[in-house]
């Protein structure tokens, strides 16, 4: 019975997880390493890599600062409407990525609220990099906050209050007490946020306009190559993203364990 269950579970996971993952690398390398290297050192691919890195480099820190601020307000203080606020922070996760892109088109697109004004001032947001960054910020909005809020709530406020009573300033308390207590949880949120920021497809696809070398991120580049039947190149680009996913899982595994240890030692203080 036991081995039957294990076998059934592994068969399911193999079919739906491991084989698709292996298939990406198989297809990418099928025509040899030369084709692979050529595909990922293509100028359009390099531009896509640069844009993907740039997008993540803007979106992740912004959502990190937000996550810390939100967690500080929600976890360390009590105020009316706290539950509503926590639910609202999770809202982007329940919105389809396509709709996430659409709402920015409604605001910044040519027919949008700010469209005429933006055109007068020759500012492009939709079909340009700012739109891609905005859509990415939206879809990765809750990641850091939802890691930090429960963690900081569990740790309570005694340590911070003690520091304040002993004369520490607000920033000192934050940097020396709160932050060290949540470092691993914070990293965990950042890793997940980054993976989604680099891999987002639907939302970015709506606002990008698919201009090669200018507004193509890596996932969009993979899509274009695939639709042009350049399968080896498409899977080569996709394999970079699959590698990113694997690195994310490895980091997540180790950071997750550290976060657990950390909370174990800090969480029982009160």
């Amino acid at each position: 019975m036991r081995w039957l269950l294990i076998a059934a579970a592994l068969a399911f996971l193999t079919l739906f997880l491991f084989v698709p993952l292996a298939f990406v690398f198989y297809e990418a390398l099928k025509k040899g390493i030369g084709v692979y290297v050529a595909a990922i050192s293509d100028p359009d691919a390099l531009d896509a890599i640069r844009l993907t890195l740039l997008t993540a480099a803007i979106a992740v820190p912004l959502n990190l600062v937000f996550g810390v601020a939100a967690a500080w307000a929600i976890a360390k203080f009590s105020f009316p409407g706290k539950n509503v606020l926590t639910t609202l922070i999770d809202l982007p996760f329940s919105v389809s990525p396509v709709i996430a892109g659409l709402i920015y088109v409604l605001i910044f697109g040519l027919q949008g609220w700010l469209g005429p004004w933006l055109r007068e001032h020759d500012i492009r947001i939709i079909f340009a990099v700012p739109g891609i960054v905005l859509a990415t910020i939206f879809v990765t909005f809750p990641f850091v906050a939802r890691e930090l809020i429960p963690l900081m709530q569990a740790q309570g406020t005694e340590q911070e209050e003690a520091a304040t009573v002993l004369g520490a300033s607000g920033w000192q308390t934050f940097w020396r007490i709160t932050l060290p207590n949540v470092t691993w949880g914070l990293l965990y949120g950042v890793i997940l946020c980054n993976a989604r920021a680099m891999g987002e497809f639907g939302a970015v696809s709506v606002v990008s306009g698919h201009i090669r070398g200018a507004t193509n991120t890596l996932p969009l580049q993979a899509e274009i190559l695939y639709n042009e039947y350049q399968f080896s190149a498409a899977f080569a680009v996709a394999s970079l993203l699959a590698l990113l996913a694997l690195v994310t899982l490895v980091l997540k595994y180790f950071v997750g364990r550290r976060a657990v240890d950390r909370q174990h030692s800090a969480g029982h203080a009160p």
């Binding site: 996971l13 993952l21 993976a195 996932p219 498409a234 996709a238 997540k252």
Partner: peptide, 22 residues
């Protein structure tokens, strides 16, 4: 256990072309 989270970490477009190819 660690790989169960793959669908969260793998960009959806990559999953899409891999499944379509398979």
């Amino acid at each position: 256990d660690a790989l169960v989270d793959l669908p969260f970490a793998l960009p959806t477009a990559v999953a899409g072309i891999a499944l379509a190819g398979l």
